[in-house]
């Protein structure tokens, strides 16, 4: 190291030090850049593997695979529409449940509960995220599905079924509804934790401005805190949606399995992820394998598109006039 005196007396040691630090910078830059390239290469590699694996099915069914139904491993006729619809149904259903409950919980944890309870409650909710999804699957299969079968599904069938055909199904227990509920429970910690962080970051001054104008507590929460934290909350929802689209094992264990389009919410079916997991062992031909990988490719593309859309939504909303009352 060049000492301060040396710096003053001659310029050489200083230059040496600078060039040494330049070398350090270069190494640092090289390492960081190569890590970025590794990540991109993994992303591209997955895409290439999916495309090559799906190629036989793509050559045979083309893009029609996306809009066709029918899943016949014997005659080798495959169409992924039921799984795409199933994926959207399960993800959206779970997001509605978990989004509503999760946002209210986050507001409750930050604004309503007394301070000494906030920490423990948050910690308990975060713990939900550490439970392996196969355990959720078991719980869903053995506890939740029978419970829903006796209660919610019965009620839906009797009271809503006659009027709305979407609820007029046989209460099997396992099926789309059970998958939705168990998935919602899994999304909850993600939504609560991230929304809570966004709400905590709302400056005290802004909230005080609201109180100072005579707003009541709930008005301050809904008109000031939540709009102010909106980007963070949307971010939480996007991450949760990504998880909802891709969640595999818990959904595979509770969704029942089936190759047809859902007619009611109690039907049994598959999502793109769960059909791969459950049918992989049944693969009887290369074409069947290729069709499953094609499903994987569709899921991959959907997830990427959702995240790109989310990026643009967040960017548009974060404009200076974004905050609405």
């Amino acid at each position: 190291m060049a000492t301060a005196t040396a710096d003053v007396l001659t310029s050489r040691p200083q230059n040496e030090a600078r060039s040494r630090s330049n070398r350090g910078d270069q190494i640092y830059l090289a390492v960081v850049t190569s890590i970025v390239w590794v990540v991109l290469a993994i992303f591209a590699g997955i895409f290439v593997v999916l495309v090559t694996g799906a190629w036989p099915a793509f050559k045979r069914f083309g893009l029609g695979f996306i809009v066709h139904t029918g899943w016949d491993p014997v005659h080798l006729v495959f169409g992924a529409l039921p799984f795409i619809v199933g994926t959207v149904l399960v993800a959206v259903g779970a997001m509605i449940l978990a989004g509503g409950v999760g946002l209210l919980t986050a507001v409750c944890v930050t604004e309503v509960l007394p301070r000494w309870l906030q920490g423990p409650v948050t910690w308990l909710i975060e713990m939900l995220a550490f439970i392996p999804s196969v355990v959720y699957g078991l719980f869903g299969l053995l506890v939740l599905a029978p419970l829903l079968q006796r209660t919610v599904e019965m009620w839906l069938m009797i009271h809503l079924g006659p009027r709305i055909s979407f609820f007029n199904g046989a209460p099997y227990g396992v099926g789309y509804l059970s998958a939705i509920v168990i998935l919602a429970v899994m999304l909850l910690p993600l939504i609560v934790t991230l929304s809570r962080e966004a709400l905590i970051l709302v400056p005290r001054e802004i909230k005080e401005a609201g109180y100072g104008l005579g707003l009541e507590r709930w008005s301050v929460v809904w008109h000031i805190s939540v709009p102010f934290a909106r980007n963070g909350i949307i971010g939480a929802f996007v991450l949760a949606l990504g998880r909802a689209l891709g969640e595999t094992i818990a959904v595979a264990m509770t969704i029942g399995g089936g190759f047809e389009l859902p007619k009611t919410i109690m039907d049994q079916g598959y999502t793109l992820a769960s059909v791969i997991a459950n049918e992989f062992n049944e693969v009887s031909s290369n074409m069947y394998l290729s069709a499953l990988i094609y499903c994987g490719l569709i899921l991959f593309v959907i997830t990427v598109i959702v995240n790109i859309l989310a990026y643009f939504i967040v960017r548009r909303l974060s404009g200076i006039h974004g905050f609405k009352a």
Binding site: E205, E208, Y211, G212, L213
Partner: peptide, 17 residues
């Protein structure tokens, strides 16, 4: 009360509107 007794704070805190 808060309408009858207005307040301005140490840091200017306009809403982002």
């Amino acid at each position: 009360l808060r309408r009858r007794v207005g307040m301005a704070f140490q840091t200017a805190n306009p809403f982002p509107k």
